[in-house]
């Protein structure tokens, strides 16, 4: 197939790498300007490159959610204020809470400094929501599932089945509610009469699907790996999880935790990699990981680094470089993402 004239998009995992990297960059900085850059870059790239598929609406939904969160945050900060210095904008009546809620203040002066602080600080949350929503708008979920590493194969298949069936079941629900009319049912919606037929249909489907998968060799294990597999990775993952828990407890009680944390991540990584190598399935026409994807990866890591550096030395140069790295996917892709 000729891929030259096709719309160039990225490997779905590259989109996710980009989104998650920007989220990490977000977490590493509190600078309002840097956050604004990350948010702008995400929105520009996503709106320029998303397709018309249902999941492409994720960013719009994300922006809505983030705005609602921002609003709630402001309202809470206004109602449950902490007294502080600054120019008073308006004053809410102070409500006396019972004795046992001593530390909590309701109402009182609202200062512009406080609102400003809350708003600026909310940008972090805003950016966090937007970056992930951007990635999920751009990455085709089905292709994402198909590109998962082998260790997630089973989960991936279950999710492929369900993402394939969701629109189908939504249509079935419509069909069933029409059918209710045919029995002379006058109610507009009835859970019993809609959910039960849908449920029966889905169970029947599950049984048929299980047979069809079985009859196509799903779950077939070559003799070599049939016995004794999975032990080593399981143990490594168990150790990793245990150490992880230990390090988190250390962190919570305030002692040093960095070394145990590093160990736990190491064990988990080993376990997952080992488990992944035992996978016996093959992949048909995997989506290629080209130099464009590599470039986006490098740029994303660059964005994280820049965000960290900017904490110490912020200047317009760094801000410009950050914008450039965040926008990298825009430069290596063209047109709307293909569904």
């Amino acid at each position: 197939m000729n891929r030259v004239n096709e719309v160039r998009t990225l490997h779905p995992l590259a989109w996710w790498f980009w989104g998650i990297s920007l989220a990490i960059a977000t977490s590493r900085t509190a600078n309002v300007w840097l956050l604004a850059i990350i948010i702008t870059a995400t929105i520009v790239v996503t709106f320029a490159r998303r397709s018309n598929d249902p999941w492409a609406a994720a960013l719009t939904i994300g922006i809505k959610i983030a705005c609602v969160a921002l609003f709630i945050r402001m309202v809470i900060a206004i109602i449950f204020g902490v007294p502080g210095d600054g120019r008073v904008l308006f004053t809410l009546p102070r409500i006396r809470l019972p004795e046992w809620l001593a530390g909590i203040l309701l109402g009182g002066d609202v200062t512009s400094e406080r609102l400003n602080f809350v708003l600026m600080e909310s940008l972090t949350i805003f950016a966090l929501v937007i970056t992930l929503a951007g990635a999920s708008s751009l990455a085709n979920p089905k292709q994402t599932l198909r590109s998962l590493p082998g260790i997630l194969h089973e989960a991936g298949v279950a999710l492929i089945i369900s993402t394939t069936l969701i629109p189908h079941f939504a249509m079935s629900l419509k069909r069933i509610s029409q059918a209710r009319k045919l029995r002379g049912d006058e109610k507009r919606f009835s859970f019993k009469r809609s959910v039960i037929p849908l449920f029966e249909e889905s169970l029947e489907r599950a049984l048929i699907m299980a047979e069809s998968m079985e009859a196509r060799g799903y779950g077939h294990k070559p003799d070599a790996v049939a016995g004794g597999r999975k032990k080593a990775p399981t143990i490594l993952i168990l150790i990793g999880t245990g150490t992880l828990l230990f390090s988190l407890l250390q962190m919570l009680i305030g002692s040093r935790y960095a070394i145990t944390l590093a160990f736990s991540i190491f064990f988990l990584a080993c376990g997952l990699t080992l488990g992944n190598q035992m996978n016996t399935r093959s992949k048909y026409r995997p989506i290629p990981w080209r130099k464009e994807e590599l470039l986006v990866m490098v740029a994303s890591i660059g964005a994280i680094t820049l965000a960290i550096i900017a904490n110490f030395a912020f200047n317009p140069l760094i801000a410009g470089a950050l914008l450039l790295t965040c926008m990298a996917p825009l430069c290596v892709t063209s047109g709307k993402a293909r569904s």
Binding site: T164, S212, Y218, H220, P222, Y284
Partner: peptide, 26 residues
Amino acid sequence: NPALGFVTDTVEEELVFGMESLGIAP
């Protein structure tokens, strides 16, 4: 009813579903 036994959503993916689980070379 073969439509009920389909696991994926395009023709090509459906064709390779079995081969992938058997681990046949790409």
